[in-house]
């Protein structure tokens, strides 16, 4: 049983498309397209983080008694990732393409290494400790209202 790993990982892959679309728009110099791609990507990331922080992490912490450790670090990394959102949006609005590319590159690497930790370590731990019903409820919440 690997519901959490499969479905949450699938959600990570969805954001890869957003990155590629944004990078392509930046390369062609299409600022409107870049802003549109960024709004979609940001909404997807915020939704994913929110489900993790409000539902998945608390469920894991309740099941294991681990209040620090993995979930604490993942929350910290969410904050680090979110900190890049405003400068990136500002750079896009100001049509500073090079600054936006730089911020996007940093965001991409930061997010991907964060995803790797979740996919390789945290999600498999969630699959082990959470019941089937709990897992199903979590993935339904992830799918619901997904942008």
């Amino acid at each position: 049983m690997s519901t959490i790993t499969t479905r949450f990982t699938h959600d990570h892959r969805r954001s890869d498309e957003g990155f590629a679309a944004l990078e392509a728009a930046l390369l062609t110099g299409s600022v409107d397209a870049a802003l549109g791609a960024w709004e979609t990507l940001q909404a997807e990331l915020q939704h994913h983080f929110l489900i993790e922080e409000e539902a998945l992490f608390p469920a894991f912490e309740a099941a294991t008694g681990m209040n620090g450790g993995p979930t604490e670090v993942m929350r910290l990394e969410h904050a680090q990732i979110r900190e890049l959102f405003a400068p990136l949006a500002s750079a896009l609005e100001a049509k500073e393409t090079e600054a936006a590319r730089d911020l996007l590159e940093t965001l991409l690497v930061m997010l991907q290494q964060h995803n790797m930790k979740e996919e390789n370590v945290l999600y498999p731990m969630c699959d082990q400790v959470l019941g089937a019903g709990q897992q199903e409820a979590l993935v339904q919440r992830l799918a619901a209202n997904s942008p």
């Binding site: 910290l76 680090q80 900190e83 890049l84 400068p87 590319r101 730089d102 911020l103 590159e105 940093t106 690497v109 930061m110 290494q113």
Partner: peptide, 23 residues
């Protein structure tokens, strides 16, 4: 550049936004 940025961002009590990777 990634490790440098990551550790700068995590630096306790930091002020301001650290230089990003391509910088």
């Amino acid at each position: 550049p990634f490790l440098t940025w990551l550790h700068l961002q995590q630096r306790p009590g930091r002020q301001g936004f650290p230089p990003t990777m391509l910088r």
